[in-house]
Amino acid sequence: MLALPVYNGKNLLGIDFEEWFHPQLIQKYLPKKNHELKIIYGIDKMLDWLRKNETFATFFMVGELLEKKPELLDKIIENGHEIAFHTMQHNRLDDNNFKEKFEKELDLFDKLTSGKSKGFRAPTFSLNKNTSWAIDHLIEKKYLYDSSIVPAKTKLYGFNDADVAPYNISSDFLMGDNKSSLIEFPLLITKVFGKKIPAGGGFFLRFLPLKIIDSAIKSYQKLHIPATFYIHSWELTPELMPSLPLSISDKFITYHNLRNALPKMTKLIKKYQFTSFERYL
């Protein structure tokens, strides 16, 4: 068992580093072919933003981007940030035949990062009872933590009964296993009209009023729990994100308030202390 870290007043910031064509809601509209890279060219902007705000982050990296641009690794590490795994092509864990590919992907990412990756986040938070096999592979590869659990149920993901505080997780006990060596860092949630909803990033960062997110962080502070946040690379660089012809609902989730994601996150990291998972541990 890996001992749970003692709360130190800091919160956790993960950047899900992926291209414009990786999000699940976009993939179904695109033909299977090589797409032009755009978002990776915003890496300097992201690093400058973190530097100016004296904040460290964990980059949950889609591995194929490191294959195409290996210099990304040095830029991230040399600036004091952490690299972590987000699958090689942003596959959901429950995609057809992905179970057979996952271990090979872990090995490949290990080579690409010279063994520096010790954390994982499942695309679209697709870790669930049917995909818990992934945890066994993470433990086998000496990973220290996962951050794929959202303690609120949505149409795409989530567990209403999951703990909001970091806990040890295993493939048999997604809600907690004190004997496990893998730590789970659940994403920030809040309650609106008595209903649990995500509040730690992505669409909900863009959709929820800042005062609701601010209140959620304060409630975690009172409980001595770190607020775990994520923001997509394309939310930090909306000027590089192409406008795609999606359905009304998918377009709303993908593009709503996109240009306000960076200003909102900036206000949060100026007001509260954030750091990488590696530094928190």
Rank of each mutant, 00 (worst) to 15 (best):
L2Y: 00
A3S: 14
V6Y: 01
Y7R: 10
Y7H: 12
G9A: 01
L13A: 10
E18Q: 05
E18F: 03
E18P: 03
E19P: 06
P23Q: 04
I26W: 06
K28F: 07
K32P: 11
K33D: 00
H35F: 15
L37K: 15
L37Y: 14
K38A: 01
I40M: 01
I43F: 08
L50P: 02
L50R: 13
L50H: 06
R51H: 14
K52A: 05
N53F: 09
T55E: 02
T55Q: 11
F59Q: 00
V62I: 14
G63I: 03
G63T: 12
L66S: 05
K68Y: 11
K68I: 15
L72H: 07
L73G: 09
K75W: 06
I76M: 09
N79A: 07
N79F: 04
G80Y: 09
H81K: 13
E82T: 13
I83Y: 01
F85P: 07
T87A: 05
N91Q: 15
R92F: 12
R92Q: 13
L93W: 04
N96G: 00
N97D: 14
N97K: 15
F98I: 06
E100M: 11
K101Y: 08
K101H: 13
S114P: 10
G115I: 12
K116L: 12
K116T: 13
K116D: 00
G119D: 01
G119R: 05
G119T: 05
R121Q: 07
R121P: 04
A122Q: 12
F125V: 04
S126E: 00
N130D: 12
T131N: 05
S132I: 03
A134R: 07
D136L: 07
K142L: 01
Y143K: 11
L144A: 07
I149N: 03
I149R: 05
P151L: 05
T154W: 11
K155S: 13
G158C: 06
G158S: 10
G158M: 07
N160L: 09
D163S: 14
P166N: 12
Y167S: 05
I169P: 02
S170V: 13
M175K: 15
G176T: 09
G176M: 08
N178M: 09
K179W: 00
S180Q: 10
S180N: 09
L188K: 12
V192I: 15
V192D: 00
G194L: 08
P198E: 03
A199M: 08
A199D: 02
G200Y: 00
G201P: 03
F204A: 01
R206K: 14
L208Q: 09
L208K: 10
P209I: 01
L210M: 09
I213G: 06
A216I: 09
I217C: 06
Y220T: 10
Y220H: 14
L223V: 00
L223K: 15
H224I: 06
H224F: 11
A227L: 03
A227N: 06
T228G: 01
I231N: 04
H232S: 10
S233E: 04
E235D: 03
L236W: 02
E239T: 06
E239A: 04
M241S: 01
M241T: 14
S247F: 03
S247K: 15
S249P: 11
D250E: 14
D250F: 02
I253P: 05
I253T: 13
T254Y: 14
H256F: 15
L258G: 09
L258N: 09
N260K: 15
A261N: 00
K267R: 15
L268H: 09
I269S: 04
K271T: 11
Y272Q: 07
